[in-house]
Design a binder for these strands. Structure first.
Lengths: 205, 205
DNA sequence: TAGATTGTTAATCGATTAACAATC
DNA sequence: TAGATTGTTAATCGATTAACAATC
């Protein structure tokens, strides 16, 4: 019996739902509906119900969804009911900002180590972390069992760094370098490049 | 005669194509094909040809695309054959990293000013920019005719900042605060939240 | 109970792919 | 010319929406 495959586009919306639910909790709300959630996010109520129904039945007819319960369920689905350690590679402006970023708290992720190849940076402190020599990347990541990494190096080094990360056991990479990475089937990559987002909007100006 | 509406999902791929083409130019390449481009990007050759055909005929049967020419054409389509000034709001770690980011060069965008509300930051230098008082946001942006902005403030202030930006004439906002903005029809918003990308991958771990 | 909202089915809509004539 | 690759059409595939019975 083959397990049902969830479309990636549905998986991609779950973190958005979760973020909105956590926001509602912060506003001291306890119950919501697919309609309200949809209005906040600019997504149709039907789509939200359809997406959630891929994973189970989380609501009650007539009343909607318990925010607390639904958030818990989505956290379990996304595997962020535990906390994943992240390795950051590159201690420049972006790597430093990421290492100090407060926004990971309570979202199932935390930075655990940061690497650079610049002798002038190795050994210095960034937030609570001491910058490690990139030569230690593979053993450190293997030893810690880290599966998630962020690349914040210049483009020229991103592919090479990705390969090291993968051979150290990393399976999910968030790449801030503006270049496409070639990786094997079993490795996930996501990209953050502000220019891509901006150019997508300048089209309409 | 209504102008043909291009699907937003197609517009969203053009910056990706452009980035890959600029990369190829940097590698001293001069000609490419939909197949090669597709392999680099993990997109089908048919899709690339279909996307481009929405805007014109840029290739030659038998030989493919002149990289230089195609990049030029895409730049024109995306309106990044000129350079857009960007206002950055929030001079914390993220705002500072963005203001110093080298990756805007030759991509049709540049940071022009940065604002904060912290008296301890106002007047200090970040890269080549002097942090301006957020009280000056509306007049400064209006005066400079700026249409593109990035929000890098705490979540609590993002909505309020967005409203100020919009009333100053901004039409495209890249929001680093992990919260959904409510804006009018004529304003575009894009979001960057590393946690959203990471949670999308932890699902598969 | 009456009103509200879910989960799900079927219909619609839109995006992707396959295939190929045109042609460089 | 022969080989390669485009631009485009038609077919396929997948995602979104509308509608409603079930039920809280």
């Amino acid at each position: 019996m083959p397990e049902k495959v969830i479309p990636d586009i549905v998986v991609g919306r779950l973190p958005i739902y979760l973020r909105a639910l956590q926001r509602m909790l912060a506003e001291n709300r306890h119950v919501t509906s697919s309609q309200e959630l949809g209005e906040r996010l600019g997504i149709s109520a039907a789509q939200i119900r359809k997406d959630l129904s891929q994973f189970g039945e989380f609501g009650k007819q007539g009343t909607g969804y318990s925010i607390d319960y639904l958030a818990d369920q989505i956290r379990q689905i996304l595997n962020v009911d535990k906390v994943w350690d992240i390795a950051v590679v590159g201690a420049g402006d972006i790597g430093s900002a990421v290492a100090r970023y407060q926004g990971f708290a309570n979202r199932g992720l935390q930075v655990a180590m940061i690497f650079d190849n610049d002798p002038g940076k190795i050994g210095t402190k960034i937030g609570p972390f001491t910058v490690q020599d990139i030569a230690e990347l593979e053993p450190s990541i293997k030893q810690a069992g880290i599966k998630v990494a962020m690349i914040a190096t210049p483009s020229e080094h991103a592919q090479e760094v990705a390969e090291q990360l993968i051979s150290a056991g990393v399976q999910a990479i968030l790449n801030y370098a503006p270049i496409n990475l070639a990786v094997g089937e079993h490795v996930r990559v996501q990209y953050i490049d502000p220019v891509i987002h901006l150019q997508r909007m300048t089209y309409y100006l």
